[in-house]
């Protein structure tokens, strides 16, 4: 599929559809196919330089560029929010280089690129979730040798992962790892679910949508095909648990979503809001109200307006 997209800059050559050239996209798709065939296995790929710095989601952007088509609708979130810098610039990037439709609504998106969160709304079979991954190797901080970690994956030697959890319990009395919480995929590979909070780990299990992970700096791709078993590692006497909050969302009153703490002033006042902006906005549209709502825009003006 050769398709070019007009570059509005004066005299500049046109973009190939979705920025990357077709050969590169094919290379990434081959890596993706292998990753889907071996759930949780890190497939090396020839990651390209992207017009953004490492750490801004270059891995996720390359994966999205390889799977996106002209009829797709793209949603990009950063820490659950559609309106943060990273999300806005990646959304604009694809709006410009692929001219695809973009949305902030989880339900309307066919591809969702994410950093740090899985949307609260349950995803469907016709959706693809693309994660931006900074460090794909879950064993990295315990075993710095890449040759050794690869061997450990190959031979299923994962005792070391539990050493980390043991350390957590002995220091804090409970498993204090709250994000990038290691999971066992399909009873075979231990995988870093990227720095999503462990709150989202259960959503990965048996998810209807295809989940793709791209690490740009480390040049690794891994994947979870739909309906894959994903189990969070734990101990028999210290089972896996997700975070809970005593507060509810100040805007929409949700008690079942992941909440961000917002410091309101230097008097110790604070509030909690849903990190998933679309989920929160949708609930407010449906008439749900939290204690801090007062039908006044609070925090970001956009979010307040969306609620009205």
């Amino acid at each position: 599929m050769e398709q070019t997209v007009k570059n509005p800059a004066n005299g500049a050559p046109d973009y190939n559809f979705a920025y990357l050239d077709e050969q590169t996209k094919r290379m990434i798709r081959r890596a993706l196919l292998k990753a889907v065939a071996i759930p949780g296995y890190q497939v090396p790929f020839a990651g390209r330089e992207m017009p953004m710095p490492y750490g801004w989601g270059t891995g996720g952007v390359q994966v999205t560029a390889a799977v996106i088509g002209p009829n797709d609708t793209l949603k990009v979130i950063d820490q659950g929010a559609d309106d943060t810098t990273n999300a806005v610039s990646i959304r604009q990037f694809f709006a410009k280089t692929a001219q695809v439709a973009t949305t902030e609504k989880t339900a309307e998106a066919s591809i969702i690129q994410t950093r740090h969160r899985i949307p609260e709304k349950e995803l469907r079979e016709d959706q693809v979730l693309v994660y931006q991954v900074p460090i794909p190797e879950p064993l990295r901080f315990l075993e710095p040798r890449e040759t050794e970690t690869r061997k450990m994956h190959a031979l299923e030697e994962y005792g070391l992962m539990h050493v980390k959890l043991y350390e957590d319990i002995s220091r804090h009395g409970h498993i204090a790892t709250t994000y990038a919480y290691p999971v066992m995929v399909d009873d075979r590979y231990v995988m870093d679910p990227s720095p999503t909070p462990k709150f989202d780990n259960p959503k990965m299990n048996n998810m209807a949508a295809l989940q793709l992970f791209g690490a740009g700096r480390e040049k690794r791709i891994y994947a979870l095909p739909p309906y894959t078993k994903v189990k969070s590692l734990d101990f028999e006497d210290h089972p896996f648990e997700v975070q809970t909050w005593e507060d509810e969302c100040g805007m929409c009153g949700a008690r079942d979503s992941y909440l961000d703490e917002v410091i309101l002033d230097d008097q110790g006042n604070r509030m909690f809001v849903c990190s998933d902006t679309d989920y929160c906005a949708e609930r407010q549209e449906a008439g749900h109200r939290g204690p801090q709502h007062h039908d006044q825009p609070l925090g970001t003006a956009d979010r307040g307006k969306a609620a009205e």
């Binding site: 005792g159 070391l160 002995s170 220091r171 101990f235």
Partner: peptide, 18 residues
């Protein structure tokens, strides 16, 4: 920690009870 050092081999052979 010392405890984790001793426990590593146990966890490596599948011990999962903290």
């Amino acid at each position: 920690s010392a405890g984790a050092n001793i426990g590593e081999r146990l966890m490596a052979i599948g011990d999962r009870h903290y």
